[in-house]
Each structure stands twice: as structure tokens, then as C-alpha cells.
Amino acid sequence: MSTPLLSAENLTKAYGSRLACAGVDLDVTEGEVLAIVGESGSGKSTLLSLLAGELAPDSGCVRYRMRDGRSRDLADLGPAELRRLMRTDWGFVRQDARQGLRMAVSAGGNVGERLMGMGERHYGRIRGQALDWLGRVEIEAGRVDDPPSQFSGGMRQRLQIARNLVTGPRLVLMDEPTSGLDVSVQARLLDLIRRLSAELGLAVIIVTHDLAVARLLSHRIAVMRAGRVIETGLTDRVLDDPEHAYTQLLVSSVLAA
């Protein structure tokens, strides 16, 4: 097996006396979707921030295989290097679109900004790629000059996806991307995420409290409770034959649709 794209070893982070993340090991590679599930307060979002290098761990490390093939510890990257990584090779789709988008800037501008961050300066090419990506996430070309403040919740999430994928990232982190959306809007978004991640061979880490989302999108799953990963494995195995008492409780608490 080749080196994973991203791997975390023994990641630990405490807020005061409370362990938000305790000794977490995980890895993900290209073409793979890993779901992190658990209830609110289980440490999922802290883990995602640690993986993204937004938070520094108290101990443990996150390694990332750079485009030149070398694995680097995120803690050893300078702030400029880390920023460049986040702007080009990584995507981060936020639960709250207002954190992931510039609400007052046009949809096309939101997508184009990431390209400009990579050094693209040609207006026509930027606009062309922005239009292409809006089309791929099913946003009409006629909305390219509208700001996301005028978009529905589902459209904002699709715009976030376009903004993140336009630079051809290898890793995309998603924090509850479908929560708060109507069920039909959710289905459309899930379908889009599923299709694009498979087509582009992305490594995806998705945090969700919704087991149905995890089942539909992910290959592997990690179940978190009180900052620890208590069960991990093939998504369908963990959901259909859960081993840990807490996973059994989670699975049995879901209404079958």
C-alpha cells in the first residue's frame, strides 16, 4: 500500500481539562471518502480543524503527501506554505456557507478568487472556468454575477463546492455540508458530492452526524465519542454490524426511512 495522502497520528487536543480529541489515528488517500460520525460535542469538528492545520494539536501530528511526493508534517510547514496548500491543494466545505464564501462578492468572483490565489490573472479564462464550474454544480450561468447572499441554502453549498474544486484539489474536507437543508435539496447535493468525488478521484473527509449521509457517501467510517475514535471500518459493516455499544445505540436510534 502506498503512503496515504493524509495521515494523523495520536492527535490530541484539550480545552482546559476537557479532551476534545484524544489519541486519534486515521488516514485517507485519493479516491477514498472517510466519514467521521458522532453526536454533537463528540469532537468531530475539533478533529477536522486539527486535520486542516487550523488548530495546533497538544500532541500528535498530521502528515500530508505533497505534490512532489514527499510527506510533510503540517507543523513543519511555514504559514505561507500552509496557506498555499489550503488555497490550492485542499478544499474545505463549511457547514455555514457564510464562513466558506464571500457573501457580498458575485458567484463568479467567489469561484475566481481561488484561481487568482493560484496566480491566474487572465480575466477571460477566470470567468470561463468559473462559468464551467457553476455549470458542473448545476447553477445557471445567468446567476454568475449575483452574490450568494441572494442564493438559497442548497445553492450556496453547491457554490462552495465549485469554489473549492476549481483549483483541482486532492483533498476536500467537509463539515456537515448538508445539515439544515431540505431533504430534496440534500439528496441533490449528496448526489453531486458523490459524483464529483468519484470522477475526480478526490480524498474526502466528511464530518456528519447523519448516518444516512455517511452510508451514501463514504467507503470507511470512524465513530467518535468523547474525543475518541471508538470504532472504525468499512462503512456498511460498521452500520450493519456495529461492534461497540455506543455505535449500536447510534445505529438503533435512527428512524429507518
Binding site: 468499512l234 456498511d236 459493516r237 450493519d240 454490524d241 461492534e243
Partner: peptide
């Protein structure tokens, strides 16, 4: 069958 498919432990 589910064990052979890895769906059950």
C-alpha cells in the same frame, strides 16, 4: 453471505 462480502464481522 454477508460475512463473505465483509458486511458482517
Amino acid at each position: 453471505l454477508k460475512m463473505a462480502y465483509g458486511n458482517y464481522r
